[in-house]
Design a protein around this nucleic acid. Structure first.
Lengths: 340, 340
DNA sequence: TCTTTTTTCCGAAACGTTTCGGATTTTACG
DNA sequence: CGTAAAATCCGAAACGTTTCGGAAAAAAGA
């Protein structure tokens, strides 16, 4: 390995000068700088980032703790799009990303903060964590290193969060169904360890109450954010609440499951029952019928999340909270209620 | 920051002993070890991985250069599944992943090998690179650091590759169509800067020739691996080769595009034209008609790729090449040719 | 009791870089 | 020409860890 010393020797200067020359400091003669650069080139020198960060305390690295990077996520590609956003913004700002191997199988022995401290990342972005994650509290309380949480509404001196506005999104979805004349609207929600589930439920209630429709808790089913869960929930709705003409699903995946059940039971969507999802995953535009849904911009979640983190790092902002808007995408799975 | 020195001082021993105690060396009294561990705990010490790797030359980090991590990839989630596989295996073996910000927009000034050398990663996995990538050659020739290429058939002392067997997969697809009685089979291929395109074309030819069907180059169109490209190619096929009754698409995304065109032109799939794809992306099981395709195990590409890299690192194998099998998934987009 | 072996510990160097404080040389100014 | 200022360079320390070689202390053997 060729080091700064080798260059110094060959160029006949001190290591100090080599360092300063290569880093563009201005107290080095242009001619010596050229020479040093030439020698560095000849020896095909490349700086050792590890040594550099040991002294500078800077790694230009952002830690990523994305617990939902797994096979199952391929369908909704949720984590993926977030990652793309982070990757793009981090790339633009010249940060690299360190993906921690948060081993979910064997109980992790190291906390997130330990992980980040050890590796000297400058900050971290956490996504896919459950509200009851044992290490989450520690991250926030210790306030040890700057981080941005995705979809977890906690802030602190050094911790910010970003999310899409689930509540208004859910209200938007429910309103859409209401405007189509539906009055008996069920909801298939995700598991309640996710904050977004609470928010989406609240939005659903908001819309109902504002429209003067009674909110009936028994119409809300748990689909645990999975396709099978959605399918299962739909069976129960069909069985127990035949009066229901529309279902708001808190995720597209669950909506897909619900539609599968409806197909099996030979109930036509949207003619007999309207379905609206949440997320706008790519399948939504291809399935049959195409799914009406609330689009949330997952990419921006990552992109602006990365931006927020770096703003926090550079103490460039006091803002610790970003809420992204959503968009209603009307496709084929919802329809004006049949006038009976 | 609390260091090993602080522990040494508080425990009344030397830094050497602390280091050896914490790292489980056996030349330290069990009692002192306990004491040191206790002190470390009290001070909530966490080791500095940067300093450690400066001296040990080990980072337990794998570099990732995945040039196709971008928004567009959300539909096929190809890069994502590979990443999941890598992430899982790396996690199991206790490696972290460093995602390099290969900024495709501004021309990268640093080569991959420079990137990896600087950051002292132990090895790297490269995916999504084009055959004509300017830096690819350098990686292989310099042989500077161990790496695994995905879908690029080059090997070397320290470089291995992993891919799914595109050629046999394409033959499998074409055979499926032949067995259904099709004789006029067009192909929509990807751009030819990808090695897989060449392979899939070869497989297509293999199958045709083996079945005694003439290979006609004019039936092969370039869909450049995009949905729009597939749609465009399909238009041309319809226009110029009305005799075609089946199309083999070298990717599901292009198949989706082709099906879009067919729907617009009111040609029924599979009644009038059979379509088979390649990849088995998640949409394939949901679109209408559901897409018959060749499934390749992208997750294993990553998982076994990571394994291969680590085997190379540990000099545990001389194998430098892994070829994964594919699987024909028959759904709804192919059918026995209508007997005329 | 004396020597040898084993156990337990430590000092110092090393990893490759940055940076502080100062030294030397050159240039500018009166 | 003498002095002040600017330009250019350098030595040494520091970052937090590991490890080599050996030293001191304890245990074992004769």
């Amino acid at each position: 390995m060729v080091t700064i010393k080798d260059i110094a020797k060959k160029a006949g200067v001190s290591v100090t000068t080599v360092s300063r020359a290569l880093n563009g400091h201005d107290d080095v003669n242009e001619e010596t700088r050229r020479k040093i650069k030439r020698v560095a080139e000849e020896l095909s020198y490349s700086p050792n980032a590890v040594a550099r960060s040991l002294v500078s305390k800077k790694t230009r690295t952002i830690g990523l703790i994305i617990s939902d990077i797994n096979r199952a996520g391929a369908k909704d590609a949720f984590a993926y799009e977030i990652l793309c956003g982070i990757n793009d913004r981090a790339g633009e700002l010249n940060y690299d990303l360190l993906l921690f191997s948060t081993n979910p199988s064997k109980q992790m022995e190291k906390s997130y903060s330990a992980l980040c401290k050890e590796r000297n990342v400058e900050g971290a972005i956490l996504s896919g964590l459950r509200l009851d994650d044992p290490y989450l509290q520690e991250v926030i309380e210790q306030n040890a290193f700057p981080c941005v949480l995705i979809d977890i509404p906690k802030t602190g001196e050094n911790v910010g969060y970003i999310a899409s506005d689930s509540r208004s999104g859910a209200a938007m979805a429910t309103n859409h169904l209401l405007q189509l004349g539906h009055r008996h609207i069920a909801m298939i929600n995700g598991h309640d360890r996710a904050h977004v589930s609470q928010e989406r439920l609240a939005g659903y209630r908001d819309a109902l109450e504002q429209a003067g429709v009674e909110y009936r808790p028994e119409l809300v089913y748990d689909g645990s954010f999975t396709e099978d869960g959605g399918a299962e929930a739909m069976y129960r709705i069909l069985l127990r609440h035949p009066e229901v003409t529309a279902v708001f699903c808190a995720s597209d995946l669950m909506a897909l499951g619900a539609m599968r059940t409806l197909e099996r039971m030979e109930r036509k969507v949207p003619d007999e029952i309207s379905i609206i999802g949440f997320d706008d995953i790519s399948i939504a535009a291809y399935c049959s019928p195409k799914l009406t849904t609330i689009r949330q911009d997952k990419y921006q979640l990552g992109y602006q999340g990365a931006q927020l983190l770096i703003d926090i790092l550079d103490k460039r902002t006091d803002n610790r909270k970003i809420l992204l808007g959503n968009q209603l995408i009307v496709r084929e799975s919802t329809r004006q209620i049949a006038s009976t």
